[in-house]
């Protein structure tokens, strides 16, 4: 077997589409998440699509004791080991304002949980001297805005972590890709307010796989979001603080 992807947060629509695409080119898959019955169905799907191997493992970002078995399993894999992290949670900002205790969960799911997992698996990956790590952050992390700044700050923290991780892992031949999706047509956005330049999980996955092939460092998807965020980052704070979007 040439490659195995360990996918954290495998129940998300983007993660499922990514696993399906990797299955069709014969990669091995270890799908991790909390809803095991749902992930079980995805592993069966991936096996039928041509994955050399597809396994389910339980993980809860809020319980680091669940990381151990996955790290152990990774040690036994032959060939390149890749990690993709799709975990995250986004309660409405208003819900957070009503119950600030929600903040910790959001930060763990999107930032500290993934960071801890990646730090724990780093020595293994460095020893292998190959492979890729893909972390899913968000355009929401590029600048905090009134609508979802807790989620945005968690993603920003993870993006900064990935930047340093790339700096470290690149020295051992492990590639690190930071993905910053704009709005994607998933259950999270379905029925919500109409958003511009909405992408689909399939299109995002096609962009991700192309970026991995080209060993890009940061990917905005849909691509237009790179340009939009460039402009948004340049807006002076005195003006930005009065804006609503």
């Amino acid at each position: 077997m040439s490659e195995t992807w360990i996918i954290l947060g495998a129940t998300s629509a983007m993660a499922r589409a990514f696993a399906q695409a990797e299955a069709e080119v014969g990669s091995g898959l270890i799908l991790c998440g909390r809803r095991l019955d749902d992930i079980e169905a995805t592993t069966a799907d991936c096996r039928a699509r041509g994955a050399e191997m597809a396994e389910v493992m339980a993980i809860d970002m809020r319980d680091p004791t669940t990381f151990g078995p996955i790290l152990e399993r990774a040690k036994g894999l032959v060939g390149a080991v890749n990690v993709a992290i799709f975990t995250g949670s986004m309660p409405e900002q208003s819900a957070i304002d009503a119950d600030p205790s929600l903040i910790e969960g959001v930060i763990i799911d999107s930032h500290t949980g993934p960071a801890r997992f990646l730090t724990e698996i780093a020595p293994q990956l460095e020893a292998r001297g190959c492979g890729a790590v893909m972390g899913i952050t968000s355009v929401a992390g590029d600048r905090g805005r009134i609508g979802n700044y807790v989620y945005g700050s968690a993603k920003a923290g993870f993006a900064t972590y990935l930047s340093g991780y790339r700096n470290r892992m690149g020295r051992s031949g492990v590639h690190v890709l930071t993905v910053k999706p704009g709005p994607v047509d998933t259950a999270m956005t379905w029925g919500g307010p109409k958003m511009p330049f909405m992408s689909t999980p399939e299109a995002v996955v096609a962009d991700m796989r192309a970026a991995l092939r080209k060993r890009r460092n940061i990917l905005y998807t849909a691509k237009i979001w790179g340009l939009i965020m460039l402009v948004i980052r340049m807006i002076p704070e005195p003006i930005f603080k009065k804006m609503n979007f």
């Binding site: 629509a13 169905a41 995805t42 069966a44 799907d45 096996r47 039928a48 699509r49």
Partner: peptide, 9 residues
Amino acid sequence: TRLDRILSF
């Protein structure tokens, strides 16, 4: 359309 899994083969 999102119920797109192959359950067994």
